[in-house]
Amino acid sequence: MRDVAREAGVALRTVSRVVNGESNVNAEMAGRVHSTIARLGYRPDERARQLRRGSSQTIGAALRGTGGMWEHTAEHTARAAGFMTLAASTEDDPALYAQVIESLCQRRVDGLMVEPIGAATPYLVAEVEAGLPVVAVDRPLEDVPADSVVSDNAGGIRAAVEHLLARGHREIAYIGDSERIYTGRLRAEAFRSCLQEAGLAVEDASVTTGEAGPEMVADALDRMRRCSAPPTALVTGNNVISWQVLRQLGPAIGELAVFCFDSLENAELLAHPVSTVNQDLEGLGRTAVDLLLARLAEPERERQHIILPVSLSIRASSEVPPPPRARRRRAHKAQAPSS
């Protein structure tokens, strides 16, 4: 910094003010300092700047996976506000989840975005009590008093089921994520409530939840086929399950009305275009950073839980009408194995 001051012909304090972004510097002097910095290749000591500022200008992010739309938007929103994002994947593993959060806190990030996986987080309570702003994204932190932003999970499922009911479907099935997960629980509960409000029975075979994977989906589809009145419509709880359903049903997907929660990439280009409930992923990322910045500016502000609306993309898959009851029962009887 002394070299910069000497070469630019200004006081050392002036260089310090320019480097730290202070506004009370003559424009002509600031220009000389900046050009000298560029010519000499000077780089400020970031650790010293953090000590003086009391801020690292970084936001930590503990994510279930990296590279998604909300994470991308959050990074750009943070950058526009002068913050860099330090992100790591927890891979839905409780031990790694704890390790990632503890590691980010040790790096003294100014705030933390967390995508909870359902595990308890007692180590995070102390950080929040010490003043670390934390925002939960996609699902709340149930054991930590933190701001949160989520999608309207129940509203999305309700809209999909009501659409299918309006098309005449009465035997509707649901395949969703484990109900130990906040989103999985809310979506399954909303599905059951919709059927009950419509005066329809909720049979065991009509609702399947569990760890998403090929085996779980195969078992769910098998139980659907064995029902006395096989479902004529299906709602899926997330895009992982939706893709498994599409793969396993193959061409038979056209015989069943299907509505998927979560956008599916190129869903409109499939041979049988799929209707989807779409989350506002950009809104999730943008709101998460906004909540963090607001908490940094006003630490004592009231906690906020923001629910973002979802939207529907209606395509051919949800427009398949239910077959006449008599024909459906005859078809099922013909498929039943002989004794």
Rank of each mutant, 00 (worst) to 15 (best):
V4G: 05
V4R: 06
E7T: 13
A11E: 13
A11Y: 11
L12K: 13
V19W: 03
A27I: 08
A27S: 08
E28W: 09
E28G: 10
H34G: 09
R43L: 13
R47F: 13
R49I: 07
R53C: 05
S56W: 06
A61R: 08
G68A: 11
G68R: 06
M69F: 15
H72C: 15
A74E: 07
A74G: 07
G82L: 06
T85H: 04
T85N: 06
S89I: 02
A95N: 15
L96P: 08
V100I: 09
E102L: 13
Q106P: 07
Q106L: 14
V114H: 00
E115V: 15
I117W: 01
A119I: 04
V125A: 15
V125I: 15
G131Y: 09
P133K: 02
P140R: 04
V150M: 10
I157Y: 02
A159F: 07
V161C: 08
E162Q: 09
H163E: 09
L165H: 09
H169Q: 00
S178N: 10
E179S: 03
R180I: 14
Y182L: 14
T183V: 10
G184Y: 03
G184W: 04
R185N: 09
L186E: 02
E189T: 12
E189Q: 15
F191D: 03
F191I: 03
G199V: 09
G199Q: 03
L200M: 00
E203S: 11
A205H: 15
A205Q: 12
T209Y: 10
T209F: 02
E211L: 14
A218T: 02
A220H: 01
L221G: 01
D222A: 13
D222T: 11
R226E: 01
C227H: 08
S228G: 13
P230R: 00
A233H: 08
N238H: 04
V240W: 12
I241H: 00
V245L: 06
R247A: 15
Q248A: 02
G250F: 01
P251R: 11
A252N: 11
I253Y: 12
L264T: 01
N266K: 15
A267E: 08
E268T: 07
P273E: 08
T276H: 02
Q279E: 08
L281Q: 12
L281V: 11
E282F: 11
G283Y: 06
L284R: 01
G285P: 03
G285A: 02
R286S: 15
L296Q: 00
P299D: 01
E302P: 10
R303K: 11
R303H: 14
L308I: 11
V310E: 08
S317G: 02
S318D: 06
P322M: 05
P323E: 06
P324A: 05
R325P: 13
A326V: 13
A326Q: 12
R330C: 14
H332P: 10
P337G: 00
S338Y: 12
S339V: 14
